[in-house]
């Protein structure tokens, strides 16, 4: 069988109605939304007829939002996903990146391991900042063996929130080292499980040996406003640096 008449094919036919300067993108969106539940191409029975009247008056071509991102790093079970979920306007989505042969050699930080594949689940969410700016929050495992995907995530990021469980500080050393080396603004955010910290913030700062310029804060990953405030501390720091750099050049 040959599904030449796929919905996509139909959609790519120049519209028979509407002006040349109409809104093909808008129509495409409309058409696709009718298809989306079944991801259409198996259903060639009733290809939609492009009709501008159904779609309303031609709209201005909608641009894609400009994405910005913040990395949420931390060890297993410290509350990264909770953090993302608390502030994201969508339920956190999970994507998987598996290390492949192409990445072998990058992962050799795990001593005594001959494992050539690693699966990493990355949870992310987003917040629409304004009409043209969208903030993405990527929650990523904080251990050294996942370092291969960090360059990717950090490139172009506004900064990083290193989520820490005060009872298991050791898991965040790599993240802190990494962001320091990458010269990415970051904040150490100690997740207060049940409102309780195993060590106070000064002890955490001492144990992690982070510089004085790195904020060490306490927050509650379950509380939207608490997460928001933690991100604001990070952004203040990012802004400070941006202004310093602008001033210096």
């Amino acid at each position: 069988m040959d599904y030449v008449r796929s919905p996509e094919w139909q959609l790519t036919v120049p519209p028979v109605t509407g002006g040349r300067n109409g809104d093909p993108a808008g129509r495409h969106r409309g058409q696709h939304s009718a298809y989306a539940p079944n991801v259409g191409w198996h259903h060639i029975g009733a290809p939609p007829v492009v009709d501008a009247r159904v779609m309303g008056p031609p709209k201005k071509k909608r641009r894609a939002p400009i994405p910005v991102k913040i990395v949420i790093a931390g060890g297993f079970g410290v509350g990264k996903t909770t953090t993302v979920g608390a502030i994201s306007e969508i339920a956190p989505l999970t994507t998987e990146a598996e290390m492949t042969t192409a990445s072998i050699g990058v992962d050799d930080m795990l001593p005594g391991s001959d494992k050539t594949t690693t699966t990493v689940a990355m949870d992310f969410g987003c917040v629409t900042i304004d009409g043209s700016l969208k903030l993405y929050l990527f929650g990523t495992p904080g251990q050294a063996r996942f370092g291969f995907m960090w360059d990717d995530l950090s490139r172009g990021a506004l900064g990083a929130l290193v989520v820490v469980d005060s009872a298991r500080l050791e898991e965040c050393h790599f993240a802190i080292d990494y962001f320091e080396r990458a010269n990415l603004p970051f904040v150490v955010a100690v997740n207060a499980f049940d409102g309780h910290l195993a060590h106070d913030l000064n002890a955490v700062r001492w144990a992690l040996a982070v510089g004085e310029h790195v904020p060490v804060i306490r927050f509650d990953a379950r509380q939207r406003l608490s997460v928001r405030d933690a991100l604001l501390v990070l952004l203040d720091r990012a802004l400070d640096r941006a202004l310093r750099e602008r001033g210096g050049t």
Binding site: V127, L158, L235
Partner: peptide
């Protein structure tokens, strides 16, 4: 088939970009 907006990026070190994100987050309640 697709437009991939690799050029539509914000400079993460642009103070105005950061201020916009700050304003956007502050609006969250």
């Amino acid at each position: 088939h697709l437009d991939v907006h690799t050029l539509d990026v914000a400079d993460p070190r642009d103070p105005e970009t950061i201020r916009r994100v700050i304003r956007g987050l502050r609006a969250i309640s």
